[in-house]
Write a protein that binds this DNA or RNA. Structure first.
Lengths: 138, 138
DNA sequence: GTCTGTGCAAAGGATTTGCACACCG
DNA sequence: CGGTGTGCAAATCCTTTGCACAGAC
């Protein structure tokens, strides 16, 4: 996704390269952490309808350009699907989010599938760590 | 939690052993998978107010008797906090949930903390795997 | 030009809040 | 009895749906 432009990425998955979709992708690309729908609307340089953002995110998530992230809040967050397979540490006090890499999904999935009776393959995963950050502790 | 009765468990964390709280714990204990607030209301043998269930779950989650589970749905699910540290495989097609054990949190947390600049300890974690189950594939 | 995608309005569903009453300890 | 918890009503927030118009290809 880094190599290709967002226009190309959209075409590659059969989606039209519309303004709202490009803006959503750009805002997510700029942000360092997962964003809420409201965050995306606010941070877009072009005015976007909230409903449109919902529909863009749904299409982008289905096309695997975007990933939905749930962090025990009352709303979902979204981030670009990246090949580095990063995850998050979330402060249960102030909500700050830090990314981290290094989760051996292959091993986890394999181990899980070995004992599973209902599933034969894993397409995606979510791993979130929760703690209290240093600022909130002191 | 298995050894102690729910009444004792509540007392141990300084919560009053009220009917609604006991019913919520019992329903969650009976269920094999995480339940929604509506599930809990429906499956309780005693009539429970939905608002009360929300407040019970909040208190129980804070006391670490219950864990909130987010599976990319538009509502949260809840399950008993257990010492076996189980997680879930979710079918993105039909929504069926299967539990699995075997996730080396200690290693994951340690590796994440080693590179973290904001956090010094991890209290909890969530690991969810997503795939399409065998029934939906065929 | 066609058909997908957007914007606006409104509905739907989940969760939270306010307040008087109930009940645990 | 005193203070925590509950139930009901209503508000609030997040997300989805319907439909006419706009824009990508």
């Amino acid at each position: 996704m880094e190599r290709k432009s967002f226009v190309e990425a959209l075409q590659a998955v059969g989606l039209r390269a519309t303004h709202p979709r490009l803006h959503v992708l750009r805002v997510l690309h700029t942000a360092a952490v997962p964003l809420s729908v409201d965050d995306i609307v606010e941070q877009s340089t072009e005015s976007l309808d909230r409903v449109t953002v919902y529909r863009c995110l749904e299409a982008l998530a289905q096309a695997r350009l975007v990933r939905q992230v749930d962090l025990r809040k009352n709303h979902s967050l979204y981030e670009l699907f990246d090949e580095h397979d990063h995850h998050h540490i979330v402060c249960t006090s102030c909500g700050v989010i830090e990314n981290f890499v290094g989760c051996d999904v292959a091993a986890l999935s394999e181990s899980a599938l070995r004992r599973s009776t209902l599933f034969s393959n894993i397409n995606d995963h979510a791993l979130e760590l929760f703690g209290v950050c240093n600022s909130c502790t002191t």
